[in-house]
Write a protein that binds this DNA or RNA. Sequence first.
DNA 1: TTGCTAATGCAACTCGTTCGCAATTGCGAT
DNA 2: ATCGCAATTGCGAACGAGTTGCATTAGCAA
Lengths: 140, 140
Amino acid sequence: MIIDDPLREALEREGHRMTAPRRAVWDVVSTAERHLTADEIAARVRAEHPDVNLSSVYRSLTLFSELGLVRESSLDSGGPAHWEPAHPDDEFHLRCRRCGKVDHHTGDLVGRVREHLEAEHGWVTEQVELLVTGLCPDCA
Amino acid sequence: MIIDDPLREALEREGHRMTAPRRAVWDVVSTAERHLTADEIAARVRAEHPDVNLSSVYRSLTLFSELGLVRESSLDSGGPAHWEPAHPDDEFHLRCRRCGKVDHHTGDLVGRVREHLEAEHGWVTEQVELLVTGLCPDCA
DNA sequence: TTGCTAATGCAACTCGTTCGCAATTGCGAT
DNA sequence: ATCGCAATTGCGAACGAGTTGCATTAGCAA
């Protein structure tokens, strides 16, 4: 018995249909060990569902991001976008310049940005994206 | 008499030639009141130099970013990249969701990220990009 | 001024992503 | 159950930002 199905819940909440492509895309993204491009997602989806089209993958991802299930992060400008399950935005990205690895890191920095901007400058903070590029412990 | 010419200095330092298109692109970017796309830069350049090609604008911008003169920031994933003069990276971006305005803001947050990651986690921080999306004081 | 090479203009091309449309399919109503 | 219709899909064509190959032009050192 499935006790927690965020995809089904989110779809029903907004009146969208549960379909095989959507299920498959969600399974791939939500269990991926790293950020995937749309192409990579399509490839993994097709291992089980060979007929799923790339456009459907894109459409699913777009919908999921509107539903708050996934997040698009264009770490390298120019290249294809990468997708990851949504996470609280006090988590940020660490990208290693040499090996390309992307880590997540959690800190209170994002919360501090929010407080500071709101109290001192009147900005209402909705989303914070923090990307740190450098060398990971292995490559340093 | 020109007392400070970062473009000429940077070009000479690495053995590149000073050309009319490069001069014009640099003038536009370095005096722009906001971040511009390559297309917008080309349009402004052509007001004075109608023959400058879009590819030359792209090539100039790519070179300038290697020289550390400009920075590419892909604030909206999907859309065209925006370009701005390079600035110290303890300055970060505030983008208003409603009016689209992009402000700069300086704080010690970026420095703190750097220290924390280096001391506690062994990461060598080279570049920090921080983008805050929300509502500016006018739109809130 | 000359000569060599970097840089340019132009057009064709790449590639990630989107769109139009006919065929399919989920799912609420019957 | 099954019907009917709108949502969703697959497919291919289109789109737009950015890049590249190549013949021509033009810096700049000698």
